[in-house]
Every structure is written in structure tokens, then in C-alpha cells.
């Protein structure tokens, strides 16, 4: 099962205008935007599809209030879709759409679609740093930061789901869709990556009661930690609510910064995630503040020493 990752996440929201503005301010580019929603793209064309909660084009909702309506997974070619269809048709309904994509549900009722990926190849440098002992990554006179430097999400990175039955969903993603488990936070759940993606995770599952089933957060990759900090600072200054971060996770090594959203879940900037292949042996650590991050910081208004002593 050669799945390469997430192309889109589809949401049916209550406050469409608010959500549209939110995703644009987050740094995604609107495509086909109108009063019924639109696609909000990262630089590589992956992104969020937004609709009103009652839009008839949306797949059926979960029985909880979750606004996540579908995960769209990408594969390289039609034969990969055929292989997934053949496997899944053994025990569930698989619907073939006119464009050749297929739709089905996982054992917990999350709606999935598999299509030939629309992810556009990116050709962009990573954040460049200079360090003693290593060749300079920025040439002479090439500066590292400037006030209006670009800091736009490059690619849809991962989704985190609240799942009421861990065994069932893990068996399905690993056994039927070909995902690998990269690491496990005991007490929370596993990180997974699909066979054709070397990112540490495109999925993370958190065990919860049934009434919580849904989406915990989704994340976009940035070009590096500086872009993450710049994008998050700009977003904060526009009045958006930071929830956790900036910081750097241990498992995956990715930098993170989570924000509240009108999508019923957090939306995260991430950067510089570890890559893995099949020789990797999954680690395990008890979930909690220690295992979750190597450090955690908090945003504050710009300040600089100066101005002299206060209050005589």
C-alpha cells in the first residue's frame, strides 16, 4: 500500500467566514473560494477544504460534534488505488468516484478518500544556518532574517485523531493501509507514517472515550524553526490564541506551535521533523510533559533593554 501522505483534510464548520479568514491569516492560499467555502493551499498544493457543516457535498459527519469530515490520502498512481480497493473491498464498502479516487470508512467511522496525489513537488531551500566547524550555508552578505521575510506553510504534515478503540484503528492503518509505527507515547498512542513517506509521522492517535472521537489537531510543515517562529509571532499579533508552544517535540524532533481555531481542533505550525526508514525500531515513552518536548517557550511582546531605571 504505497500511500504518500495527506493531500487534504476536509472540514464542515459552523463559522465559515471566520474559518476562511483564519486559514488565510495562518498563511494558506485560497483556491476556488466562494460563499460555500474553498480549498486553502500550502505551497505544495496540499491543504484544507472548508465547507459549511450542512453542505450536502460533504461526507457524513461523525456522531460527535467533530468538524473533520474526511481525510484525503495521496498515492502515486492508479495501480496503488486499485491495490487498496482490492484489499479493502474484502470487508467493507469502497466507492469508486468518477475521477478514479475511492472512498471508504475506517473501522471507527472516520471517512477516508484515496486519490492520485495532487501534491506538487517543491524545490525550495530549507532554512540555512551557519555554525563554526561546518561549511557556511549562507553565502557572504546573505542575511538570515528580515522584517517581511516569507513564512508560509509548505505542506500539510499530519493529523492527530481522538480514537475510542486504539486496537481496531491501529490494526487497520498498519495491517490494511500499510502504515508503520515510528514511536509510541504510552498512555496516549502511536505515531504512524505511511509506506511511501519518510516523515516521522503523518498520523498520531490518542486514546479517548467515545464521545470525544474526532480531530485533536492538524499541522503544516514550515521551512525551518525561524519561519515557524516568524509565522507564529505574526499570527499571535493578529489576535489568534496560542495554545502550546513554541517548543520542540522529542519524538519526531519537530518544532511546534499550536493555536486554537474555529475548526474544532488545534492548528499547528511544525518544522524540521525527523525522517525514518523501515530499519527504525519504535521507541516508547510514558506520555506527559517530559516526553512531549525537549523545551517549551512562550510568546511575549517585543521588548529590549533600555530606557533607564523606572520609578525613581
Amino acid at each position: 500500500m504505497q500511500i504518500s501522505g495527506l493531500d487534504y483534510l476536509v472540514f464542515g464548520v459552523d463559522d465559515l467566514v471566520g474559518a476562511q479568514r483564519y486559514l488565510e491569516d495562518f498563511g494558506l492560499a485560497p483556491v476556488d473560494q466562494d460563499e460555500t467555502g474553498g480549498l486553502y493551499e500550502a505551497l505544495d498544493g496540499t491543504g484544507i477544504i472548508l465547507r459549511k457543516r450542512d453542505d450536502p457535498r460533504l461526507p457524513e459527519a461523525l456522531s460527535t460534534r467533530s468538524m473533520l469530515r474526511q481525510q484525503v490520502l495521496g498515492v502515486r498512481d492508479a495501480s496503488a488505488i486499485d491495490a487498496i480497493e482490492a484489499e479493502l473491498a474484502k470487508d467493507r464498502r469502497v466507492t469508486r468516484l468518477a475521477d478514479g479516487s475511492i472512498e471508504f470508512r475506517d473501522p471507527l467511522g472516520f471517512n477516508l478518500k484515496v486519490q492520485i496525489t495532487r501534491r506538487r513537488p517543491l524545490d525550495l531551500p530549507a532554512e540555512k544556518i551557519n555554525a563554526p566547524g561546518a561549511p557556511a550555508q549562507r553565502a557572504a552578505n546573505e542575511i538570515g532574517v528580515w522584517e517581511d521575510m516569507p513564512a508560509r506553510p509548505r505542506s500539510l504534515s499530519h493529523v492527530v485523531l481522538f480514537v475510542p478503540d486504539m486496537d481496531k484503528i491501529v490494526a487497520f492503518y498498519t495491517g490494511r493501509l500499510g502504515f508503520r509505527i515510528t514511536d509510541v507515547l504510552t498512555g496516549a498512542g502511536p505515531f504512524l507514517r505511511p509506506a511511501a513517506n519518510d516523515d516521522h509521522h503523518t498520523h498520531f492517535f490518542i486514546r479517548t472515550p467515545e464521545y470525544m472521537q474526532g480531530c485533536e489537531h492538524l499541522a503544516f510543515h514550515m521551512g525551518g524553526p525561524t519561519e515557524l517562529m516568524v509565522a507564529g509571532s505574526r499570527f499571535t499579533r493578529k489576535g489568534y490564541q496560542s495554545f502550546w508552544g513554541p517548543g520542540r517535540h522529542k519524538f519526531g524532533s519537530n518544532w511546534f506551535w499550536y493555536f486554537n481555531s474555529p475548526l474544532g481542533c488545534h492548528v499547528e505550525y511544525d518544522a524540521d521533523m525527523d525522517k525514518h526508514d523501515d530499519s527504525w525500531v519504535a521507541r516508547e515513552a510514558p506520555s506527559g510533559p517530559e516526553a512531549s518536548q525537549i523545551f517549551l517557550l512562550q510568546w511575549r511582546e517585543k521588548w529590549a533593554p533600555g530606557g533607564g531605571p523606572e520609578g525613581k
Binding site: 471566520g18 489576535g239 489568534y240 490564541q241 495554545f243 486554537n260
Partner: peptide, 9 residues
């Protein structure tokens, strides 16, 4: 934890 998605929302 804080509940708004932007200031006052």
C-alpha cells in the same frame, strides 16, 4: 487553558 480562537471570540 484559554478558549477563544481569536481575541474575544
Amino acid at each position: 487553558t484559554p478558549m477563544a480562537w481569536r481575541t474575544d471570540a
